[in-house]
């Protein structure tokens, strides 16, 4: 397979996954904001957290002086200057798909194209907040349909594997990022108010679509340590970092027919390294102070895997 094609497949998955998680994070926050009547600095801080999770807060503040619900929502959804805005992610995914149309299922292209066409005639600036809610739900559903097409119709060969690696890497990185931002946030607040802010750990679960799953396994009590270990290394939860990394590894193994060659050695080393880190922390409780550095390092390790992966298969 051409490297350019592999790269585009990888990025279709990443872009769609990124759009889906931004949509979920934003939707969760919009709903929670309705339930908590707090206003002022606390609420503003909560909106800022959303921008941090989407990795765009400094770019946002270049344009807007304060963090408010509506401007934040519009910035995350539709701002063309925000490279990670949902609309840009979907547009990028369509362009990735368009340039590899001959290797992906027709339905995959058609779903992305239909979405593009439906957005073409919309003036999103006039959309009300309820309309934006609807949009966020549509994006999530779109991602589900696309994953359904991929699972239901793609041959389990190279193209499929590149799509999967893109998805798992994006997912794992996002989970790490949410954890990182939320633990920073609670640390800050703890210093100010001397209480544990369970509310944020609950949000973290919601951001990552893990709230229901978590409740099924653990009593309805938000124990921060338990939430953290659930999101990091609960191997049955499909957004836990361990689950994602295991799947990246498994998929690369398939791409390489189970063999480590000279050109893939570095990639395997990087993945081994992450696994070892996991094993180290999995069986002991991390103190709150250790979590921040661990997550920082982990995020870097993930990024490193991404770039080694790209290099191994000559992405341009």
């Amino acid at each position: 397979m051409l490297s350019r094609v592999a790269s585009n497949l990888f990025w279709i998955a990443r872009n769609v996954e990124r759009a889906e998680s931004s949509a979920r994070v934003l939707k969760t926050r919009l709903i929670n904001a309705l339930e908590t009547s707090e206003a002022g600095p606390l609420a503003e801080g909560d909106w800022e957290m959303i921008l941090d999770i989407c990795a765009v807060s400094s770019e946002y503040y270049d344009i807007y002086p304060v963090c408010e619900a509506e401007t934040t929502a519009r910035y995350i959804c539709f701002d063309r200057t925000n490279i990670n805005s949902i609309i840009n992610c979907m547009e990028n995914a369509r362009n990735n798909a368009r340039s590899v149309r001959e290797v992906i299922p027709e339905d995959l292209w058609e779903i992305l194209n239909e979405h593009h066409l439906s957005m073409q005639n919309e003036n999103v600036d006039t959309w009300s907040m309820p309309r934006i809610h609807e949009y966020l739900r549509d994006i999530q559903k779109l991602s589900f349909s696309l994953q359904g097409v991929i699972e239901a119709s793609m041959l389990r060969e190279e193209a499929y594997n590149f799509i999967k690696v893109g998805k798992w890497l994006e997912r794992g990185e996002k989970t790490a990022r949410v954890l990182n931002v939320v633990s920073e946030k609670t640390k800050e607040l703890k210093l100010q108010t001397e209480t544990d802010h369970y509310y944020y750990w609950l949000s973290a679960l919601q951001f990552l679509n893990g709230y229901d799953a978590y409740l099924k396994r653990f009593p309805p009590k938000m124990e921060p340590a338990q939430v953290i270990s659930f999101l990091i290394s609960y191997e049955q939860f499909p957004r836990s970092i361990e689950y994602c990394m295991e799947h990246v590894r498994e998929t690369v193994m398939k791409l390489e027919s189970g063999q480590v060659s000279h050109y893939s050695e570095e990639l395997f080393d990087a993945m081994d390294h992450v696994t070892q880190e996991f094993m180290k922390i999995k069986f002991r409780k991390l103190g709150m102070d250790e979590i921040g550095p661990f997550l920082d390092k982990f995020q870097n390790d993930c990024n490193r895997i991404s770039s080694i992966f790209a290099r191994t298969y000559y992405f341009v």
């Binding site: 397979m1 051409l2 490297s3 350019r4 592999a6 190279e158 298969y313 000559y314 341009v316």
Partner: peptide, 15 residues
């Protein structure tokens, strides 16, 4: 960008 000529032979850049 996917093609490359080396020693007068045309190659495509694959993974």
């Amino acid at each position: 960008q996917d093609l490359l000529v080396k020693n007068d032979i045309v190659y495509m850049k694959t993974m």
